[in-house]
């Protein structure tokens, strides 16, 4: 059995977060804890504010009220303890893979030879060895997201924020990514916060799923697919628990889909 989630340490904590854009309430009094070393998915229909919440945790957006606490400190802006993986990859088109992966370290003032050594290690880790000198436009969508992932890993942040990272890659690549992500969560002692709109994806990769409902957004349910971590990655999708959870989530979200 995995650690008892309730007692395990909390890495990130969102407390009473509200966010309004003029008249529109995107998030209302939302509180959610993210256990250390685990993957939490933010799942919900489009417009439920899941990306807004992720960007508030990243420090890219300011909440209208409430606060985010990461590792005991209140978030006031982007910080070295968090790294972001973007839906559209956000790679520098004028820089090769090596510079793109090292870019986070470059901004943190790490010397060139040192940051390139680190970047090369992570390029190999995500399976892109040999592509260091390639440019983003020469790579497939899946490979580009591996570059984005390597960039986020190379700054060695404790918290990885992933904004629908696999939504812009094809289905086969996405499945491979999901398996690799499970490996990553198991091997790296990092906290993952993962935004997705795919129920299957959320159940497959998550230790904890927070279901967000829209207008204004609040956490309607938290589901912990505890039994699935022990299963072989190849058989999870046939597991009765997996199927039950997928059905249960669909039943609760169905009414919110136009």
């Amino acid at each position: 059995m995995p650690d008892n989630v309730v007692n395990s340490e909390i890495a990130v904590s969102a407390r009473n977060i509200s966010k309004t854009y003029g008249e529109v309430e995107a998030l209302k009094n939302l509180s959610l804890d993210f256990p250390r070393g685990q993957l939490t998915s933010l799942l919900g229909p489009s417009g439920c504010g899941k990306t807004t919440l992720l960007k508030i945790i990243a420090g890219l957006l300011e909440p209208s009220s409430g606060q985010v606490v990461v590792g005991g400190k209140t978030v006031t802006g982007p910080g070295a303890d968090r790294a972001f993986v973007f839906q559209d990859f956000a790679l520098l088109p004028w820089a090769n893979v090596l510079r793109n992966v090292a870019f986070g370290l470059e901004l943190r003032g790490v010397a060139k030879s040192e940051r390139e050594n680190i970047a090369e290690k992570y390029i190999a880790d995500v399976g892109l060895a040999g592509f260091e000198k390639s440019f983003p436009h020469e790579l497939s969508g899946g490979m580009r997201q591996r570059v984005g992932l390597a960039r986020a890993l190379s700054v060695d942040a404790q918290v990885l924020l992933m904004d629908e990272p696999f939504s812009a890659v094809d289905e086969q690549t996405r499945r491979k990514f999901q398996e690799d992500l499970l490996q990553l969560v198991a091997n790296e002692n990092k906290t993952f916060i993962f935004v997705t709109h795919s129920i299957e994806e959320a159940v497959y990769v998550s230790d904890q799923i927070a279901i967000l409902l829209p207008r204004p957004s609040r956490v309607s349910d938290i589901i912990r697919p505890t039994g699935l971590r022990e299963k072989d990655v190849g058989t999870i999708r046939r597991d009765p628990e997996y199927l039950d959870i997928v059905d249960q989530i669909w039943a609760s979200l169905k009414t919110y889909v136009e």
Binding site: A58, G59, L60, P78, G79, A80, R82, A83, F84, F86, Q87, D88, A90, L92, F103, G104, E106, L107, R108, V155
Partner: peptide, 23 residues
């Protein structure tokens, strides 16, 4: 400019000068 490039630089701690010269 692609807004997410600017956001990316900011999320990795870019100063205003960094975004100007590097993005």
């Amino acid at each position: 400019i692609d807004r997410s490039l600017v956001e990316m630089a900011r999320s990795f701690g870019a100063s205003a000068w960094d975004s100007f010269t590097k993005i």
